[in-house]
Design a protein around this nucleic acid. Sequence first.
DNA 1: TAACGTATACTTTTT
DNA 2: GTATACGTTA
Length: 724
Amino acid sequence: MSSSLLSGLNPEQLAAVTLPAVPALILAGAGSGKTRVLTTRIVWLLSTGQVSQHGILAVTFTNKAAKEMLTRVSAQLPINARSLWIGTFHGLCNRMLRLHWRDAGLPEAFQIMDTADQLSAIKRLLKALNIDDEKYPPRELMYYINANKEEGRRPAEVEAWDQHSQQMKQLYDEYERQCRREGVVDFAELLLRCYELLRDNAALRSHYHARFRYILVDEFQDTNRLQYKWLKLLAGKGDPLDRLLGKQPAATASDEAAAVFAVGDDDQSIYAFRGANVGNMADFQRDFAVETVIKLEQNYRSHGNILDAANALIAHNRGRLGKNLWTSESAGDPIRVYEAASDFEEASFVVDEVRNLQREGTPLADMAVLYRSNAQSRVIEHALFQAGLPYRVYGGLRFFERQEIKHALAYLRLIANPDDDNALLRVINFPVRGIGNRTLEILGESARGSGTSIWQAACSGGAGRSAAAVARFVQLIEGMRAQQDGLQLAELVQLAIEQSGLIEHYRNEKEGQERLENLDQLISAAAVFVQENENDVNAFLAHASLEAGDHEAAPGQDALQLMSVHASKGLEFHAVFLTGIEEGLFPHDNSLNSPEGLEEERRLAYVAITRARRKLYLSLAQSRMLHGQTRFSIASRFLSEIPEDLLKWLNRGYAPSAMPARKIEKAAPEHGLRVGCTVEHAKFGQGVVVDYDGTGPGANVQVNFGAAGLKWLALEYAKLKLVQ
DNA sequence: TAACGTATACTTTTT
DNA sequence: GTATACGTTA
């Protein structure tokens, strides 16, 4: 082992990297060198000969993180990237299911549905079963199905008390049937199927159990219940319930269990809304009898004031595992706070300040504007555009989600598996070939009547008036299928987009130029995929579903980074502008119903603050356009949770001279209060007048007190003091 | 069958 | 304010 591998690690990092084969929980604070610890441990394990490349499994949440890990490991060791099982939960499960499709009860060419595919599959199911989608909204059903799968529950295990829940359960069951009939799996199914495969197949389980002696988990706080159960099974810790049911042999001796190295930060858990369960961290310690907990608290990213602010803020959360970041860096600049009269003014503040920083030599790409919700980006984008500052917005449509790409992939899917009704319905009439709704209804009914796919129904004719058009479509697909042998993947893609008429169609469309370019890029993507992986359509299609591509606009040019706080997790910037720290926005109104919701918002703010290396700006707007109307708000409670001495108000005492134009619909009130005024209440503190009713002595005003809520008050009794 | 217009809703998001 | 979804009309 080269000594340089471990040099430069701090004592805690070194301890974590060189742990023996024991279960361990690493609490890695923001900027504490988490990725470095993970990759160095892998390299250390391999280079000291403790384990072979086959014996390690490392799992992450995002493809980006997996790629990063693989790149860093292979930079330090000559490894065969394919023999190392480093990937996302879904990627690794897909890998296992492709290897054991028969044991998993899947067709060899099973296809993966992304969220959009799943939603349309559900809509189609509801239509076929004649279910009122007002009473059973497709989105709700999708959420229900995924939530159950992520708890590891099949329809049979779902409890149902009343009529509605029984129907939901029934629909879950029907949905599964439909998926089976069409040979498709959704994202949650990949995990559940893989879990069940290991649970029910003792031979496979012991094979993988013997193989993966070291399991490393990144972002452990974001795991959901099913992911945790999967990990437990893979590590040889079994599932106590299944053991009781006799579905699994008695517990293997604990020394046989794989060494699970879980890295996470409970303070950065911001995905509870999509099923992440921070409780897994406590469960892990209990279930695996974890004795080694290492805290990485030294932060190598930010200046002291920024860390102090983050620490002070997050200290307001309860039930933390406990951690305090520190740095050997100086305190640095204070955190600058700017209170703007409107969202426009907030945006122009950002523009001015970005220009200043740029003049000082900070590259635009090293500055980020963060916001709680994507809708906030518009105003900022507008201001940046006007100012001629280049910027990039994260969170747009991704490559494999583009309409033209999904269409092209649908043809490929039909080549691989014509029973994929989702794919068939997407393109049977695109480009238009005179197959309308009525025809599809007939085909759908006929398919359902005989329990087959629509493709089968289309093949057996009987499509009514459009029979000829349907027959031509069947021939088209059959023709493509017949030609696929011996073709390179890229050639097959080209063939599909040409023969389907997609190229022709977009060539005739006014705005089709970009789409044509994207289709061209798809051919290139296929060529690259074959280089890096294998010449296999199914593998390519899985790749397209699991790795929808970059979320960002074209890189290259130096550009300011715009993104939601969620999207910023894991990134860092010289300067960070956290905008819209207002009650109702951040914390968001929808999160205020529960204490857990508020705590997640606070963690979100913690994540945002800890993205900044040197300069942090917090800004808010007293009024902003939201959903087409002006909203007034007061400063976020999070602002008051940061010690005042860390903050530098750039315009405190600033009088809102230019209150935004607002149509006066009501007579001028006699009480002198106007919408937008700040008032003080003895009990509720400061708030903003949002609305009023009446003008005389019996008048009521509605005030947003932020933390204390939105309240209607009778002016006569509530002694409101006008502030400023 | 397709295009066009009006109604509706809407935090955050990876796989 | 904007995207999307559905219903109506040519």
